[in-house]
Design a protein around this nucleic acid. Structure first.
Length: 341
DNA sequence: CGCTATGGGAAGAGACGTTG
DNA sequence: CAACGTCTCTTCCCATAGCG
């Protein structure tokens, strides 16, 4: 016995007001007399009215949806970022439709089409297969996070500063050999600055260094296998030197740390490890990992502020076209834990 | 305070041409 | 002429903004 839902029409009929008045009761209650407010409130109770957000969306065209596309969720950075966005509901009441996409532009484009068909009001993009020029062409507010963003607004960590802090720490701790492990980052992506800063800092201080950009893979295990190879290579090549390893993120750093523990059963003094992101895994690891903390909460907050401002603008009667992209940089914080002196 | 047009899409109704 | 598939056109869903 699936009874039909109670609608404004039912409430109106029951109270002898019009649907308009019922709508006003919910949106501008002050425009009704207290007496009438009370009448309607009573009716809602009696009839058992349940809000219908879909009808509201249909009526005013505002879906209150924001689309998010992340590359994946096995990198803790992305899941933490997602968590931060979800918790912004408290402040903004936007809901999120989320896709994970790292299999190329075609897939990503398909996801975006789908998101658009759900009338999303804004888009947050952390994946990086579609050029920002394409993203800008969709004519809805878009915020990029840690990706190429020439034509759209963005929020990034100051990657250069972060990598510089990490590298300096390893140098200060008198590592003989500095090694940076990363994927082969495209130069247009902000994270490329981590490689650049590492290299430039090493050269500035005349410290021997090595950069290994061979990491790749589409799952935790694929990546782990590559990291294992790199670990073995380092073990063979620099057996007695004190090695300062700077990894592209905490997930890699944790893998590397685990490999060390599997081999030595402890953390030998011939290693120092610094990760990046300060995602939960860094502090939860077998030995809490020193890392460059991206202030993920601040990044998410900044991105939401920026996006909400643009979305509000789009709701005005004569929305200004999306103007010049705004780019914000968030300063990272070096967090010293147990994988460095 | 009420009336009315509005929005996107599903479902229903109707139109049309073809077939056995 | 009913039965069928394929289109196209209406109606309906519901809350809201704008106007009277």
């Amino acid at each position: 016995m699936s009874k039909k839902q109670v609608t404004f029409a039912d409430i109106a009929e029951y109270t002898n007001f019009s649907k308009t008045t019922i709508s006003r009761y919910f949106n501008h209650p002050d425009s009704l007399t207290l007496e009438n407010q009370e009448k309607i409130s009573q009716a809602l109770d009696t009839l058992g009215y349940k809000k219908n957000k879909l009808a509201k969306v249909l009526a005013n065209g505002k879906s209150e949806f924001i689309g998010i596309i992340v590359p994946n969720l096995y990198l803790h950075y992305y899941s933490e970022m997602l968590a931060q966005f979800l918790s912004s509901y408290r402040d903004y009441h936007y809901k999120f439709l989320v896709f994970a996409s790292e299999h190329g532009a075609e897939e990503e484009q398909q996801y975006i089409e789908e998101l658009l068909s759900y009338q999303i009001e804004g888009l947050i993009v952390l994946s990086h297969t579609l050029p920002s020029e394409k993203l800008a062409s969709y004519q809805i507010p878009v915020i990029a996070i840690e990706r190429e963003a020439e034509y759209i607004s963005s929020v990034n960590t100051d990657n250069y500063m972060g990598a510089l802090q990490a590298t300096s720490l390893l140098i200060r701790d008198k590592c003989d050999m500095l090694i940076h492990i990363n994927v082969n980052v495209d130069k247009s992506i902000p994270a490329y600055d981590r490689i650049r800063a590492f290299q430039e800092t090493c050269e500035e201080y005349h410290v021997p260094y090595d950069i290994d950009l061979s990491v790749e893979g589409n799952s935790y295990h694929e990546i782990l296998n590559v990291i294992r190879e790199i670990f073995n290579k380092i073990e063979a090549k620099y057996p007695d030197q004190k090695k300062g390893i700077f990894l592209a993120n905490d997930t890699y750093a944790n893998m590397f740390l685990n490999l060390i523990f599997q081999k030595y059963g402890t953390f030998p003094s011939t290693y120092e490890i610094v990760g990046f992101d300060n995602s939960p895994i860094a502090s939860e690891a077998i030995l809490p990992i020193t890392t460059v903390g991206q202030q993920i909460d601040v990044i998410a907050k900044t991105a939401m502020d920026l996006l909400v401002r643009q979305m509000d603008e789009q709701k005005k009667r004569a929305p200004k076209p999306l103007g010049e992209p705004i780019h914000k940089q968030i300063t990272p914080v070096l967090i010293r834990r147990n994988t460095t002196q």
